[in-house]
């Protein structure tokens, strides 16, 4: 029993973050699929509805936000499943560190590889949908605040259902009611900018949601994971 120093929670947090980045790098399709889904869905709207720039400008904010929401749900599925199947999740639960931080690390890395690319590509798609120039910054900002909330909420639903064999629509049924407020305030913020009003109020509310999601989401996910491995 040669005593080597016990790891600090921050070291375990960083190691989990690094591990999930590595896994995302090696399983690229998990990352690329939701991103491509987002691009395809948004680019179908001009084809399906109308190429008329005025009409497109009206629906641009809603289309992008809905596509972001769906892409986020699509990407969530991979969050805990592989870890559950190979037993790494049990190791995570049996670590002496607070599960909150371990789950937070997984959520952060998941958002960075699946949420952030969607946010970054959105101005190009907004340009395609003829979103008024005044609203670009608000769109980017609202997505930057909103997508982490979607990830943190989705994580709870995935943690609850990870033990089920086939979950199909259950994930959407659990996630959507919680995600709808984000969708509402996200589109409202962008619409406010389009109508040359200040989006600050909506964005502030979204920031409040983000604060709540960061502080409570991983706790709920952690509790759900404990139930799921039972």
């Amino acid at each position: 029993m040669n005593p080597t120093p016990a790891t600090s929670t921050s070291a375990a947090f960083l190691a989990t973050l690094r591990r999930d980045f590595l896994i995302a790098y090696k399983r690229k399709h998990d990352v690329v699929n939701p991103f491509m889904f987002f691009v395809i869905v948004v680019s179908l709207f001009p084809v399906g509805i109308s190429p008329d720039p005025v009409k497109l400008a009206e629906i641009a904010a809603g289309v992008i936000w809905i596509a972001v929401l769906l892409a986020s749900m699509l990407s969530m599925d991979s969050l805990y499943r592989a870890d559950f199947e190979d037993g790494s999740l049990e190791q995570l639960l049996l670590s002496p560190h607070p599960l909150y931080f371990m789950v937070l690390a997984k959520n952060i890395s998941h958002w960075l590889v699946s949420g952030l690319p969607v946010v970054l590509i959105s101005p190009i798609l907004a340009y395609m949908l003829n979103l008024p120039a005044a609203a670009y910054f608000t769109l980017l900002l609202s997505l930057l605040i909103g997508t982490p909330i979607l990830s943190l909420l989705g994580s709870i639903a995935v943690a609850l259902t990870v033990g089920l064999g086939s979950r199909g629509l259950i994930l959407a049924v659990i996630t959507l009611p919680m995600s709808v407020p984000v969708l509402i305030f996200g589109t409202l913020a962008v619409q406010a900018s389009v109508n040359t009003m200040s989006p600050a109020g909506y964005l502030a509310l979204m920031l409040a949601m983000l604060a709540a999601a960061i502080s409570l989401g991983p706790l709920a996910s952690a509790a759900a994971l404990r139930i799921s491995v039972d």
Binding site: P5, A6, T7, A11, A15, A82, E85, D86, S88
Partner: peptide, 24 residues
Amino acid sequence: HRVGVSKVLTPVENLRWSCSLQRQ
């Protein structure tokens, strides 16, 4: 039963992570 070894990672990467949870 499920040994806690991620299939996409290499043995070294797996062990680095599991060590970091307890003893570095």
